[in-house]
């Protein structure tokens, strides 16, 4: 059996849904970040799969480039997001996003 594009897309969709599950159901800020990172990774998997299965190879490889840039951006997002988690924890002594409901610091 050789995997087709469909199967890759289904795996990517499953990964996206798991990320969504983590982001929606867990109340811990770090879990939400983990979920977002997983959704971004699912998108990257889609980019690479579409690049690989394109009937005519692109020059330059657009899908690979998009995936590279998206990895860089998600790394930046993780750094800033985790810094925000630490700051929120310092202020409120909690990382539960339900309790971070004040506009006044």
């Amino acid at each position: 059996m050789t995997p087709t594009l469909q199967i890759f897309l289904i795996v990517s969709a499953a990964l996206f849904s798991i990320g969504l599950l983590a982001a929606l159901s867990r109340r811990h800020a770090i879990f939400i970040l983990i979920g977002i990172e997983m959704m971004l990774a699912a998108a990257n998997l889609n980019f690479i799969a579409f690049w690989r299965f394109a009937p005519k190879p692109h020059q330059p490889p657009v899908g690979v480039m998009l995936a590279l840039f998206s990895i860089a951006i998600s790394a930046a997002e993780a750094a800033v997001g985790l810094a925000m988690v630490i700051v929120a924890y310092r202020h409120y002594r909690t990382t539960n996003v339900d309790q971070l409901d004040q506009l006044k610091g």
Binding site: L20, L21, S25, R27
Partner: peptide, 8 residues
């Protein structure tokens, strides 16, 4: 902490 089942 709670687990939000609507997310599932």
């Amino acid at each position: 902490r709670g687990f939000n089942w609507s997310g599932v």
